[in-house]
Nucleic acid binder design. Structure first.
Lengths: 247, 247
DNA sequence: CTGCGTAATGCGTTATGCGCAACACGCTTG
DNA sequence: CAAGCGTGTTGCGCATAACGCATTACGCAG
């Protein structure tokens, strides 16, 4: 492991949160100002950070140029896109694709509802494991050992009054999801929004992602939402098959 | 400047292009395999790269998580969004926001046309300076010294038969754009697509971005496209004013 | 004016990154 | 089956390059 690089990457994470000043960064790393400055200069030279008026630093253009570029290279995303558009056409609601990456679930694609409803999701964002549709659609279908690993030390924060905050209750929900073949988010992450979600399998048969349909309860009642499940599952299966899955 | 960090950032750029194997990376940097491997391990530990089956490496989840996160922090983007949606509603066409970052123009926001037409643009992508609407909408309105700096060593590659490949012709086009108050891309980047584009000014009065409307020639003829210009300019002005510009 | 935070530069010290070599592993080739 | 190739891993000695510190300068606020 390279100490220098390690520190620099910590800076990127730290600065990504919000713009920071040198003093903060140096203190955060526990290094001298001049050391932090040396890193920032190199990062800036490559466009990974950018200096704002007032001596604070934020992530720079190279960061999001490469970020989007990397997304482009994910075949799952392009493979799933047609199925997502079909689901959107069928239901008129927002369709998400979430992928399990390094122990967290990230939104990697999204097809917006025709009726624009504000939703706290965006591509590149982290989907909470215990209360979002996409994440539950993945985690519920993972083997127990994987679930244990993911949820160890994970803080099941209460987001709404429906949020499941006990591991035991969550496991019961997972079991029900496996029974049904799809997972449900019943206003557990955002009040007024519920989702159905189905897992996507890799060529090796491992659950690696999930498709979800999200809708406001005021427009779509529970029964209607559940009626989307078969098409959703079929879309997820189709995507899985394209990845080489023979389920 | 930090040599270690410098090399690591080169790896990110290099790997961002397409997945690479160790040998390539080590050769690219001109270092020993073990050195390249040390970098990759550290990068992987932080999720900036990811190992694919078959010993190749690509950018990892931290990269696009932070990439999107950084985009979120750009106030220009959220400020311009409402105006972009209004333009989209008015015209039904695709609206882009491009921003000048470190000498290149990047697409940082996009509102899709209702009629889905495939277009080679995406958020995070680089907009060619000499032939795309957004970029011309910025560059045309920069002072000559800035234009010289940006275009020095820039390769004006021919993209279509309409592409301006001579600096002189481009300058004439810029002058006409300044005269009109908006720039034009007349199928110069993609055959069958034309755009109008107007500059956005920062609080200090510097041109930092542009809004553009793109449409296929088969649906929107030239006169119709030009008729969008006043609304486009007004939208760009509104965004500029929100940035503190008093034009 | 003083005090605070940042920026830039130079320098001595040494930690740390470097290349090399040796070996294990898996895959393909002959 | 053996040979060859590319990769992954570990250990070690060397010298480079990163580190911390001090100094100076700058801008801003009290």
């Amino acid at each position: 492991m390279s100490q220098t690089l390690d520190r620099a990457l910590q800076i990127l994470e730290y600065v990504g949160d919000k713009p920071r000043r040198i003093g903060e960064i140096a203190e955060f790393l526990g290094v001298h100002h001049s050391t932090a400055l040396r890193f920032l200069h190199t990062l800036r030279k490559h466009g990974f950070v950018q200096e704002l008026p007032g001596h604070s630093y934020r992530l720079g253009s190279a960061m999001f140029r490469l970020g989007f570029q990397s997304l482009e290279g994910i075949e799952l995303r392009s493979l799933a896109r047609p199925a997502m558009e079909r689901l959107n056409l069928l239901t008129g609601e927002t369709v998400h694709l979430g992928s399990l990456e390094d122990g967290t679930v990230l939104y990697i694609e999204k097809v917006e509802a025709s009726h624009p409803i504000r939703m706290h999701s965006r591509i590149g964002a982290v989907a909470r494991l215990h209360c979002t549709g996409v994440a539950k659609g993945i985690v519920a279908f993972l083997p127990l050992t994987e679930r244990d690993r993911l949820l160890a030390g994970y803080d099941m924060v209460r987001r709404t009054e429906h949020t499941l905050v006990e591991r035991e209750a969550l496991e019961a929900d997972f079991a029900a999801s496996r029974e049904r073949g799809y997972a449900l988010d019943d206003e557990e992450n955002e009040p007024g929004i519920h989702c159905v979600s189905a897992p996507v399998h890799s060529g090796e048969g491992v659950v690696i992602a999930a498709l979800s349909i999200s809708a406001p309860v005021i427009r779509v009642d529970r029964d209607t939402l559940l009626s989307y499940a078969p098409a959703l599952i079929e879309a997820a299966h189709e995507t899985s098959r394209q990845l080489g899955w023979r389920g």
